[in-house]
């Protein structure tokens, strides 16, 4: 059964990567996400937009079960990654997160060298056969993170010594190094200056070649610039989901239009 699916995926690259059905999230007594259905495509950048507190980050964190680390959080409904329920009992969240990587709002490099930051994931997941292999993985990840040229001479320097934009690209490279299939990004540019933001946005566009990217952003312009698909969240509901162009030019829902035009948010 598994083999069949793999074959199918290989053929149809633009197939659905993640499919969520009837997802409900509760924080204690708070109903944070209400009945969300969404299909996230492979090799596409999907943007989640909406006013703050609308649940877009919460939903994002469901996709690689980061919510498991919060005691009071409870998730209902189905989220399928390649047709497999990620909340199934048999699924080890550790293994899931290797497939679904994540980049956070604030750059959070480990207090280690740049090299060790990147090598951390490959090491814990046993991706490298030997030192040379690991070197190769690190270089590849740093190149994909569009930061190789800036750091190749100081791989032993601490990652915390880089500038904010460099740190965030380092974190993206770190996430890429484990060869995930999906990359989740939680407002990756909110702590960065405009120039660094531009660099990261260019990087996201390049990443689309290899990954399915889901990005949460509070900036509509950013969503318009980088994404092909956009989902609009409001008060825990997924209000509208479609091609980015369509959402921004011809929203179907009144609330989406109000948000796009700046009347709510």
């Amino acid at each position: 059964m598994n083999d069949m699916r793999i074959v199918k995926r290989d053929v149809d690259m633009n197939d659905t990567k993640i499919s969520a059905k009837g997802v409900q999230v509760f924080y204690g007594d708070t109903h944070a996400i209400k009945d969300v259905d969404v299909e996230i495509k492979d090799k596409t950048v999907t943007a989640f937009i909406g006013p703050s507190g609308c649940g877009k980050s919460t939903f994002l964190r469901c996709l690689n079960r980061m919510n498991d680390t919060i005691d009071i959080c409870r998730v209902e409904g189905n989220i399928l990654l390649d047709g497999e329920d990620i909340y199934d009992k048999r699924v080890d969240p550790v293994q899931l997160r290797a497939k679904v990587g994540m980049v956070f709002q604030r750059p959070n490099p480990f207090p280690k060298s740049i090299y060790d930051n990147i090598a951390y994931g490959p090491r814990i997941h046993g991706l490298a056969k030997n030192k040379a292999d690991l070197d190769e993985i690190v270089e590849k990840a740093l190149r994909r993170g569009a930061i190789w040229d800036e750091v190749k001479d100081r791989l032993d320097a601490p990652g915390t010594g880089l500038s904010g934009g460099q740190q965030q690209r380092l974190c993206i490279a770190r996430a890429v190094a484990t060869e995930p299939e999906v990359l989740l990004m939680d407002e990756p540019c909110s702590a960065l200056d405009p120039i660094a933001t531009l660099q990261v946005e260019e990087l996201i566009d390049e990443l689309r070649e290899n990954f399915s990217v889901v990005i949460v952003t509070h900036s509509m312009q950013q969503a318009a610039r980088v994404s092909q698909k956009t989902a609009f969240f409001h008060l825990g509901n997924l209000v509208e989901y479609g091609d980015t162009e369509q959402i921004f030019t011809n929203p179907q829902d009144e609330r989406t239009e109000s948000y796009i035009t700046g009347r709510i948010g």
């Binding site: 980061m66 290797a98 994540m102 959070n108 480990f110 280690k112 484990t178």
Partner: peptide, 27 residues
């Protein structure tokens, strides 16, 4: 040690003990 450190490590698919041993304790 900031929670962001732990999130970063867990988000990469590290187990809790790996996070503690290789990120939290060194930090």
């Amino acid at each position: 040690v900031p929670q962001a450190m732990r999130d970063g490590s867990l988000g990469l698919g590290a187990t809790k003990s790996e996070t503690v041993k290789q990120v939290v304790l060194p930090a």
